[in-house]
């Protein structure tokens, strides 16, 4: 269980989060949504414990997240960053192996052999054939898969994803979120993902948290949260909400101000 209590945070002098509170239960997949610049990534940084809020506190299993030693926290929580991994000179296997860092002692060795964990992660992301390739020889989509494999090798119980589908085409978007979903079910992970696409968020998330004006404007299941009224208020645009023909999840249909000319 992760909980943010009345957090305030500024970015370059601008207050982004103003007394935001929200909580995330174990074993569920959460989506954080909201318009640009509302502080979605900022909230994720606070939840990861790497940055501290200006005021308020983040709790992980009832204990302040700031009180955890860094390596212990990294064994429980892994983060997929916005923008993915840079094209470095390390091989795919080496980068995935970096996910084992929190388990290594100061000599760089582990108590148990991690080869199998790394191998499993590579296979799960379809990277076995690319394991020996250098990162700077891969495409953006392939690097994103390496980033996810590294997350798996880290064996966390909580994963935070910051806009994981940006820069991916729709095929890869669905593939990536399917992988995350099945991995999450299999190991009962808590997943908190910042998502831009409301329709994807609705299809994959158990619950959504909507950020608006520095606070959580709404939280609940997609069908509870995604209403034309809320979208009108938060995004300042009008939209229709219809049920997905296969899953029944709410899907947003945007409405242009001017209709195309009718014949």
């Amino acid at each position: 269980m992760i909980e943010a209590k009345e957090v305030f945070q500024e970015i370059q002098g601008r207050t982004v989060l103003e007394g935001l509170s929200c909580s995330f239960r174990k074993g569920r997949l959460y989506g954080i949504i909201g318009p640009n610049g509302v502080g979605k990534s900022t909230l994720l940084h606070l939840l990861s414990g790497v940055t501290r809020p200006k005021r308020g506190e983040v709790f992980f299993d009832g204990q302040s997240i700031a009180s955890y030693p860094r390596k212990r926290l990294a064994r429980m929580m892994a983060v997929l960053q916005q923008g993915g991994l840079p094209p470095v000179g390390f091989t795919v296997r080496e980068v995935v192996g970096m996910g084992r860092f929190p388990y290594q002692n100061w000599l760089g060795s582990e108590e148990r052999d991690s080869e199998e964990t790394i191998e499993t992660a590579l296979k799960a992301m379809g990277l076995s054939g690319l394991a020996g390739r250098r990162m700077d020889q891969l495409s953006g989509g392939e690097r994103q898969r390496v980033a996810l494999a590294k997350l798996m090798a880290q064996e966390p119980s909580v994963i935070l994803l910051d806009e994981p589908t940006t820069y991916l085409d729709i095929g890869y978007q669905v593939q990536l979120l399917d992988t995350v979903r099945s991995w999450q079910r299999e190991r009962e992970l808590t997943v908190i993902a910042v998502l831009h696409d409301l329709n994807l968020a609705s299809l994959y998330c158990d619950e959504l948290v909507v950020l608006h004006r520095g606070k959580a404007a709404a939280a609940g299941t997609p069908s509870e949260v995604l209403s034309p009224a809320l979208i009108g208020e938060v995004y300042e645009t009008s939209a229709s909400v219809v049920a997905h023909p296969m899953t029944g999840d709410p899907q947003i249909m945007l409405q242009p101000q001017l209709m195309k000319k009718l014949d």
């Binding site: 860094r70 212990r72 983060v79 860092f101 880290q154």
Partner: peptide, 19 residues
């Protein structure tokens, strides 16, 4: 080893448990 993780970016290194 911490410097190796720095190559991925400081924040990335922090997420992996580097001080």
């Amino acid at each position: 080893q911490a410097l190796n993780l720095f190559v991925l970016g400081e924040r990335q290194a922090a997420h992996l448990g580097v001080h």
